[in-house]
């Protein structure tokens, strides 16, 4: 296992994000419940990092802290050397498709964050991102007229339209059927390669993590800790039948403590 799973956590590029000693506990019925314990994490500029862990391990909480929606009980998150104190349009959080606004058309959703731009510039960006996510012809449609996969692409387009330098995705494809999910992974990689945003992607799906990420941070069950960071050293497009892919996948399965025989 030592040879198949790299433990190094040093990004080769400049550091974009640094989480230092993040701990988080919620109080429930008067009792303090630790959710995250001493999380340390570095993410490089332009990197695609997956946070992988079982349900309830606190990975979504960690992402909410990184995005500035929650403050940690202790520790701090620094992005570009600045401490995160709240949400910021330079870093957009993508929910499952539930985040699109049902009262706005596709165009209205994509243009939502562009209120500071001139009309012409806004229209130009809307057209650009409608095309990028393959929603041409649906500009005047409302989300209720779209499929789940289309809504998800719409939410990604809305996020990209404000030209953020980071994207936080919280199990974005969790509600999609398995075929749409595969297609969406391919789309996300294509967009990531075109725009080179730094992406932090939360998932509980091992295959998804190994298919997408540069590195996978494997988290333990509650209280969540980062157990290991796995380098996925396979170039894109990845052959999901290659020996190296299966080797990394098995390594993570073992790390999480799941035998791969059912």
């Amino acid at each position: 296992m030592e040879s198949t799973v790299a433990i190094t956590a040093t990004p080769t590029v400049e550091t974009k994000l640094r989480a230092e000693h993040i701990s988080m506990s919620f109080t429930r019925d008067g009792e303090s419940m630790p959710v995250l314990e001493d999380i340390n994490l570095e993410v490089g500029n332009g990197e695609f990092l997956c946070l992988l862990g079982p349900s309830g391990c606190g990975k979504s909480t960690l992402l909410s802290i990184i995005a500035g929606f929650l403050s940690p009980t202790s520790g701090e998150v620094k992005i570009d050397g600045e401490i995160v104190r709240g949400p910021d349009p330079r870093r957009i959080f993508v929910f499952q498709e539930r985040g699109v606004f049902p009262w706005l058309t596709v165009e209205g959703n994509i243009g939502f964050g562009l209120f500071k731009l001139t009309r012409a510039e806004r229209d130009r960006r809307i057209a650009h991102y409608i095309k990028m996510v393959g929603l041409e012809g649906f500009g005047k449609s409302y989300p209720s007229e779209l499929s789940g996969g289309m809504k998800q692409r719409l939410e990604v387009a809305r996020a990209l339209a404000v030209n953020p330098d980071m994207l936080f995705l919280d199990e974005p494809f969790g509600a999609l059927d398995s075929i749409t999910r595969l297609i969406m992974r391919g789309e996300l990689l294509r967009i990531w390669e075109a725009e080179r945003k730094t992406i932090i992607f939360v998932t509980h799906d091992i295959d998804e993590a190994v298919q997408l990420a540069d590195r996978v941070a494997v988290m333990s069950a509650r209280p969540g800790r980062i157990q290991e960071i796995v380098n996925i050293d396979i170039p894109h497009p990845r052959d999901i039948n290659s020996a190296r892919y299966l080797e990394l996948r098995t390594g993570i399965f073992n790390q999480i403590g799941l035998a791969h025989h059912l």
Partner: peptide
């Protein structure tokens, strides 16, 4: 109003 909508709104500044 679902909190995702509020969060998304805050996120866009």
């Amino acid at each position: 109003v679902p909190s995702v909508f509020r969060r998304a709104g805050r996120n866009f500044g």
